[in-house]
């Protein structure tokens, strides 16, 4: 089972900040402390979902970090050796060259632990072309292109550099990228699965269904969408978003859940949604294992409703899940998620 941790300053509940009224929680050090705890608990990645690319018009959100997510990922990656980072960036807000370059650079800083949560623009044809450009730019150099041959004065092998020369309907991009190739071939690409027929370019799909019933249907749709775009099921990780409400006893969990009631107006503020499981740590771990097996999910992204629930999940639920043994330094995000090894197009004979 694969596990992600969605990072917010106070938790995902829109009134979680009321339980931790402290500006320090908005600072880098407090966010890093959350990430370090998730890393120690063996989480595979941290999700920096932002407001899914939405920009604040009048007032900031307490469920998004007060930092631009790709730069926050860089800062966090420089302080943590193992955990992966998936950062949101909207295709409507970045030129493809700039975005490809930012993530290529992040992936060098994080030594192959970076992923991009691609936020769609609303125009599927444009987004499909965008993915082609970004992927093509990431393939600008073959993995063994860089020679660093001081004696011959040859920094890289020019035969192993590929100029993109993309001229499409929406974009015109010469290339090549001016960043060294990714340690994991390409950064991991993730998407929020919306079932609406958007192109599936991703290695990871996040499912935001709110009930088990909806999640069951959505998982089936996602599996079909993966097949429809010619991908193998085994080459994609399908993860459900999960809001854990944890108590010492089932009654305590119910009481905590009542205190964290959700009204419709709250939902508007929420960039991410997920199934809510209210119970003891043992029961939640059991339900997660069952759901993964019965629905064919690869794992979950945890949306802690509050910082207290985050701590309880890390301490009491995570250790009970059937997870891969300890992960070493130097492993890429692609490796952690057991995604297939990428072969550079020029090497596919």
């Amino acid at each position: 089972m694969y596990l992600g941790y969605s990072l917010t300053p106070f938790g995902h509940h829109p009134r979680a900040w009321e339980h931790a009224r402290n500006v320090e929680k908005l600072g880098f050090d407090a966010l890093l402390a959350q990430v370090t705890a998730a890393e120690s608990a063996g989480f595979d990645f941290v999700l920096l979902a932002d407001r899914l690319g939405l920009r604040p018009a009048e007032t900031p959100s307490s469920v998004a970090t007060p930092f631009e997510p790709t730069l926050l990922a860089s800062a966090l990656a420089s302080k943590t050796p193992r955990i992966g980072f998936v950062a949101a960036a909207a295709m409507a807000q970045h030129e493809p060259y700039n975005l490809a370059r930012r993530f290529a650079s992040l992936d060098l800083i994080g030594k192959g632990r970076l992923g991009w949560l691609a936020i769609p623009s609303g125009d599927p044809a444009r987004d499909a072309e965008y993915f082609d450009v970004v992927t093509g730019l990431w393939d600008s150099y073959e993995p063994d292109a860089f020679l660093y041959d001081k004696a011959e004065g040859r920094f890289f092998d020019p035969e192993k550099m590929h100029v993109l020369n993309h001229k499409g309907v929406h974009f015109s991009v010469r290339g090549p990228l001016n960043v060294n190739p990714s340690p994991q071939g390409r950064p991991v690409v993730a998407q929020v699965f919306d079932g609406a027929g958007a192109p599936i370019a991703g290695d990871v799909l996040f499912l935001g269904a709110r009930s088990v019933e909806d999640l069951t249907a959505m998982t089936e749709d996602a599996v079909q969408a993966v097949a429809a775009c010619g991908k193998k099921r085994a080459d994609v990780r399908i993860l459900a978003n999960l809001v854990p409400v944890i108590g010492e006893t089932a009654e305590a969990a119910d009481a905590a859940s009542a205190a964290l009631a959700f009204v419709e107006a709250d939902r508007a503020e929420q960039p991410l949604s997920g199934i809510r499981i209210v119970s003891t740590a043992d029961t939640i771990a059991g339900r997660m294992t069952e759901l993964a097996a019965s629905l064919g999910l690869d794992g979950f992204t945890i949306l802690p409703p509050t910082l207290d629930m985050a701590r309880l999940f890390v301490a009491d639920v995570a250790p009970k899940l059937a997870r891969r043994g300890s992960v070493g330094e130097g492993e890429t995000l692609r490796g952690r998620l057991s995604l297939p090894h990428l072969t550079h197009p020029a090497k596919e004979a």
Partner: peptide
């Protein structure tokens, strides 16, 4: 020119903002 580019270390580099985000916290 690819041949000239391949002899210059300046052909590739970190993207500056991501580089400085990491330096900022160190």
């Amino acid at each position: 020119n690819a041949d000239l580019a391949s002899q210059a270390a300046r052909s590739t580099a970190f993207e500056p903002l991501s580089l400085l985000a990491a330096i900022a916290v160190n």
